[in-house]
Nucleic acid binder design. Structure first.
Lengths: 213, 213
DNA sequence: GTGGGCCTCTACCTTTCGATAGAGGGAAGG
DNA sequence: CCTTCCCTCTATCGAAAGGTAGAGGCCCAC
């Protein structure tokens, strides 16, 4: 089991130290893989990618600073050939859609087996994509449901932040009536009946994220 | 680096395959540790504990079936000496409190270093406990805030499920007025002004969990 | 048994929310 | 140019939510 001449060069980006070390520990056993760097934030992920130009970037979506999708966009902007595998626990249709839309080549959930991960890495390295059936099914859900406009997303985020219609109105310098219009459209598009349900479905689908603390 | 005569025998319980394998891969390198089993559900965790009686159980809180706290209670009921380390991403004060209350000896977040994990395992194996400062701080928050009654928790769960006061009333066969009373108490105790904020606060603090799908 | 939670109920009132229906302006695209 | 979409606003209305202030029954602990 000697060193491989052309191992697949990989950067791991995950905000959890232990998870990164775990991945590293598993993948380093394989002679065909080489971990060239780690990143614990979105910013670091971009930096490490630029610096090392790995064959594969294993990317989580959760970071303290930039969200994973932004990382994908930023990297793909500079390096169109970038081969990015999203490896995360989030299974919301919106997160999947956004990631693939931004240019990720694969979307894996962290409950896959090591074998599946390795297979995926090899496929992507060869220029293929990799979207497991369950993920694809989630993606289909999203395609079936109407898209929110930018403004509606703004309002939705404030709703999740726990603000009232009146407060949202002052936040955006618009009338409460307008906010209500947006809210109505949001409820329609999400297929729910009140803002409380809007919050939970938005969180489940990955349309918004809760701020910590 | 030969085999240790008395390695610390460990069971790993985590719903994510890749994470389990990562932990195993890391810990197996240490001669002083031995992974004797894995579990991917709460039920399995209890079974594997009973069967192997490990020195240490590394336990996540998220499982498809039983929640981690229940697992702790079930195991501690049979095996009072059980030494359980909670290793999770959840940092809500309620989850921490419940876990330690149920008898966990340590509570670690998955962003700790491997060194910290190993140190924790050794400490717990020697009969000590291990609660990092940040976790302890979260715990303090919980102690400072009033506790919800069983009924209030029932109502809160329904609120998170997106049900209206009227619906909750029929769910529990009580009047809508009574539900409103409970809701008022909930809002007071959580320190929020409406049910939407109650939902996010409850989720952040780990008082309730969202049902998937 | 007395006090204190807890759960239950009632009543009243204000505010907020959500539904509905419309309308005007601006930007993008055919 | 015309259509379409988005954002904005107005107006009205009923339904739901939230605040306040009680009160009775139950069980447990002191």
């Amino acid at each position: 089991m000697g060193a491989n001449k052309n191992p697949i060069r990989i950067v791991i980006a995950d905000d959890q130290h232990l998870v990164r070390q775990g991945f590293r520990s598993m993948l380093e056993r394989l002679p065909s893989m080489e971990i060239v760097a780690e990143a614990s934030t979105g910013k670091e992920a971009i930096e490490q990618y630029s610096q090392h130009r790995p064959d594969i970037l294993l990317l989580d979506l959760r970071f303290p600073d930039v969200c994973g999708v932004e990382v994908i966009r930023a990297i793909r902007e500079q390096f169109l050939i970038a081969r990015i595998i999203v490896l995360t626990t989030y299974d919301g249709d919106e997160e999947i859609y956004q990631s693939l839309q931004a240019g990720a080549k694969a979307y894996l959930l962290k409950d896959v087996t090591l074998e599946a991960l390795v297979e995926c890495i090899e496929k992507v390295h060869q220029g293929q994509t990799c979207v497991p059936p369950l993920v694809a099914a989630k993606l289909a859900e999203r395609t079936a449901s109407p898209e929110l406009t930018e403004r509606e997303l703004d309002v939705l985020r404030r709703i999740v932040a726990g603000r009232s219609n009146k407060e949202i109105a002052t936040d955006f310098n618009i009338t409460e009536g307008t906010v209500k219009t947006h809210v109505n459209h949001i409820l329609e598009k999400l297929g729910v009946h009140d803002r409380t349900q809007a919050v939970t479905t938005a969180l489940k689908r990955g349309l918004v994220r809760m701020d910590n603390a």
